[in-house]
Design a protein around this nucleic acid. Structure first.
Length: 457
RNA sequence: GCCGCUAUCGUCCAGGGGACUAGGACGCCGCCCUCUCAUGGCGGAAACCCGGGUUCGAAUCCCGGUAGCGGUACCA
């Protein structure tokens, strides 16, 4: 089995492309096949080297590796030229100056459902001659779909200057790379008969070494949460944005696998080895799916909780370094801060929101202060300060014991004691467990923050 | 317009003639746990697009409609 992922570098790799890459990769790994990466950069206006780099980076971040390539399609223009000339020589293709208006006029004369047929001319773009008959696409996901040639325009396969177009290049490249399975988005289904025709024509003039035609599988499209089409042309969620939002590659792979595919036994949390083991094309769904970040977030939380503490510390550290909070991983309290945050965060980005104040100092949340550091709260806080200052030791157990003793001696609700302390030390009402947090800060820092809060009034 | 694809809870995925009182997950609601937020546990609401047909029997097969989407580019 030889599969390929063939993105066009006209924008960032978005999640639809990532899903296609993933499915190809899963298939290649499942069947011990070969994954070819090809960059389809024949769009002269919109392809950029930056986008190529971005796509490669995204694939690497997703940990989807490839066995051959990246092959740049434009590097193959000589080969494309040969194939094109061979088709021209065999009269399987012809030059034509027909414009879009000419095509329209043709349909006016022959009927809207009639495909355009041109006359061979001296110069102009190259069109493929569409023969009579029909092409049946045998799709691994959708079954057979029949396309009557009579409805199909003779497709333009190259510009007048000889530079080739997508439907031609893709067919020649798949043929030369001996691709056995073409797995891509459903938006290509309607193009498939054209590519099949190119393939057949190319084979007829001796290209492809008699290799069999590839099998096709068209994946359902991915839509945004609003149900609208999700693509780079509409500002979709890119893989880079997922990384910046603090998602884990393994969680993204798991989530993406669930879009258009299911394990069949209702299992939703599947490690990558499990995905590789269980993924096949015949369990791919035919329905378009929506990208639901809420579910991704939940899944990411599952993966974060499953991580070893050391691993999570490393990842949070890297994330902080790359996202505006560099340096904090050097803090001796950092590892413990991550540890006590683990079950409370869903993304790497959540760490800073939850526990940043522990490391960087309290934030200023006026509402929190009003609610918990009024006259009552401050009175309790003062007693807490005294108790903590005298605690025999300052580990988590000692802190807990000290504060719990205060709760019972004051006979108030626990939160009447804990929340003022939390607001005093972090500035806000949400943080990891108060005992853990205070123990992490240590006696000196805790008392300093409490004093600052007390003197603020 | 023409050609094509698709149609099950709000979302994703099962179910593909009787096992369906339609299953699981996210989300939502309630309860429990609880120092906040989470996690965890328990329970609940929530769907077969519409109309015909085939059949003893249709979510499932067929036809039509509708809707969504894709293609119809000298984009990919």
């Amino acid at each position: 089995m030889r599969v390929r992922f063939a993105p066009s570098p006209t924008g960032a790799l978005h999640i639809g492309g990532a899903r296609t890459a993933l499915f190809n990769w899963l298939l290649a790994r499942h069947f011990d096949g070969t994954m070819v990466l090809r960059i389809e950069d024949t769009d002269r206006e919109r392809s950029t080297p930056e986008n190529v780099q971005q796509i490669l980076d995204s694939l690497r971040w997703l940990e989807l590796d490839w066995d051959e390539g990246p092959i740049m399609q434009t590097d193959r223009s000589e080969r494309h030229g040969e194939a094109l000339q061979a088709l021209l020589d065999a009269d399987l293709a012809y030059r034509s100056n027909a414009t879009a208006d000419d095509v329209k006029a043709y349909k006016q004369r022959h009927g809207a459902e009639r495909g355009f047929r041109g006359e061979g001319e001296q110069g102009g773009a190259v069109r493929l001659r569409v023969p009579d008959g029909a092409t049946v696409v045998h799709d691994a996901v959708r079954g057979d779909t029949r396309f009557e040639h009579v409805h199909m325009d003779d497709p333009v396969i190259a510009r007048a200057d000889g530079s080739v177009l997508y439907n031609f290049a893709v067919a020649i490249d798949d043929l030369d790379a001996q691709i056995t399975h073409v797995v891509r988005g459903e938006d290509h289904l309607s193009n498939t008969p054209k590519q099949l025709l190119v393939l057949e024509a190319a084979k007829a003039v001796g290209f492809g070494d008699g290799a069999p035609l590839p099998q096709y599988a068209h994946l359902p499209l991915l839509h945004g949460p609003d149900g609208k089409k999700l693509s780079k042309r509409h500002g979709a969620a890119s893989v880079g944005e997922l990384r910046d939002a603090g998602y884990l590659p393994a969680a993204v792979r798991n989530y993406l696998a669930l879009l258009g595919w299911g394990a069949g036994d209702d299992q939703t949390v599947l490690s990558t080895p499990e995905l590789v083991e269980r993924f096949t094309l015949d369990s791919v769904s035919r329905n378009p799916a929506r990208f639901d970040e809420v579910k991704l977030k939940w899944l990411n939380g599952v993966y974060i909780r499953a991580l070893g503490v050391k691993d999570l510390v490393e990842r949070v550290g890297e994330y902080l370094d790359a996202n505006g909070h560099a340096g904090f991983r050097g803090d001796p309290r950092f590892a413990r801060a991550v540890e006590i945050s683990q079950e409370k965060i869903h993304t790497l980005a959540d760490f800073w929101a939850l526990s940043g104040p522990l490391l960087a100092g309290p934030v200023d949340d006026a509402k929190a202060r009003e609610r918990w550091l009024g006259p009552q709260g401050v009175a309790v806080l003062a007693q807490e300060r005294a108790a903590l200052a005298q605690a025999a030791s300052f580990d988590e157990a000692a802190v807990a014991q000290t504060l719990e003793a205060l709760v019972s001696s004051l006979s108030v609700k626990p939160r009447e004691v804990y929340q003022p302390l939390r607001v005093a030390t972090t500035g806000t009402t949400v943080s990891p467990g108060i005992f853990e947090s205070v123990a992490l800060l240590g006696r000196e820092e805790t008392l300093r923050r409490v004093d600052a809060a007390l003197s603020r009034r």
